[in-house]
Amino acid sequence: MSKYPTLASTNVGDQLPLMRKSANEAELFLYSAASFNPHRIHYDRAYAHHEGHQDTVVHGPLQGSWLTQFVTDWAGPNARLISIEWQNRASVFVDEEVQFSGTVVALDTLESIVELEIFEQKTDGTILMPAKAHVRLEER
């Protein structure tokens, strides 16, 4: 049996395995470089303070890519991500641990698509990004 979910093995209410992430200074710098983003709030602590942030800020799209990884790691290589959306509610800072959790909230058996409700949260439970995704799974 595959270690990945199929439409037949998935039920509304299923929980995705939790994923924890954080980014240190070098990782923030690497993401700035890989995304050609020179915004100083992501690598210059003094400048981040100057703009009113408590510390160097984790990029929104980096968290977006953590989010897609959270879904594709669960769904497996044969599944296809159909859509994803998120809202930025609060900032994440360098070295801060965040946690992704998700639940299957709907199944479209005709199209083999599952809908996921996802939250990125701080360790104190503060919601950083509420999100929603649709994934096409193999039937069985």
Partner: peptide, 23 residues
């Protein structure tokens, strides 16, 4: 580089045979 920078080492981004096996 982008995949490593976000910490997503999914084989379909790195290995041609893994990508082909996944369709």
């Amino acid at each position: 580089r982008y995949a490593y920078a976000v910490g997503d080492e999914n084989p379909v981004y790195f290995d041609e045979s893994a990508a082909e096996a996944a369709g």
